[in-house]
């Protein structure tokens, strides 16, 4: 087992070749179904071929459907997409309805590798405000302010800083220590 099974790749949904901006194009280019003519596991595939396949192919001339009989092999499907990806899927013991649904899914897919979507949309231009600069979202009242401005030149912090508080505490401690020493000396005398 390789690590590809453990970690699902993540990404954003993208339309291949701006599909849909002009006209919609079916993204699957060919589907190959391999099956056995006699084995029980291919029963559903044989039913699909006998009853549904002709109509399915007539309705979907955008891709080529190949049938490949393989003696005593488990049936499976290989879908090839326009972006060069290839998908395998086992049809072992599938019935006719299941096969119709899965083939239809393969037809409507874009061929992107299976991934967890980080978001359900994607844009090349995430900001409609353009590139950020230090002047973006500036207070508009600054446009009509005349400088030097008393209000803006005022010191922000009037309370003592942490450093100042520490220094004060240190001085206080020193004072207390010296007083204690003096009282001790008086007692000893």
């Amino acid at each position: 087992m390789s690590k590809t099974h453990l970690y699902l790749r993540t990404g954003f949904p993208r339309a291949p070749l701006a599909n849909g901006l002009g006209r919609y194009m079916c993204q699957v280019k060919r589907i190959t179904i391999k099956f056995c003519k006699s084995h029980g596991s291919s029963r559903g595939v044989r039913d699909f071929i006998e009853t549904d396949m002709i109509d399915f192919v007539k309705q979907n001339p955008e891709f080529v459907l190949y049938l490949k009989p393989r003696r005593h092999h488990s049936p499976h499907l290989i879908a090839e997409y326009l972006n060069g990806e290839k998908f395998h899927m086992s049809f072992h013991n599938f019935n006719r309805e299941e096969i119709s649904k899965w083939v239809n899914l393969m037809k409507t897919r874009a061929g992107a590798p299976i991934m967890a979507y980080r978001k359900l949309g994607h844009t090349d231009n995430p900001s409609i405000q353009g590139v950020w600069s230090p002047f973006a979202n500036q207070d508009t009242s600054l446009n009509v302010t005349s400088f030097p401005n008393e209000k803006l030149s005022r010191k922000f912090q009037t309370e003592p800083t942490a450093t100042e508080l520490l220094l004060e505490m240190f001085k206080k401690q020193q004072l207390e220590d010296s007083e204690a020493n003096e009282s001790k000396e008086e007692e000893s005398k």
């Binding site: 280019k29 060919r30 001339p61 955008e62 891709f63 080529v64």
Partner: peptide
């Protein structure tokens, strides 16, 4: 083995 050029051309036009 599974390659039919005429079918490929036909479906290319339809696509």
């Amino acid at each position: 083995l599974e390659w039919n050029y005429d079918a490929e051309l036909y479906s290319f036009g339809k696509r």
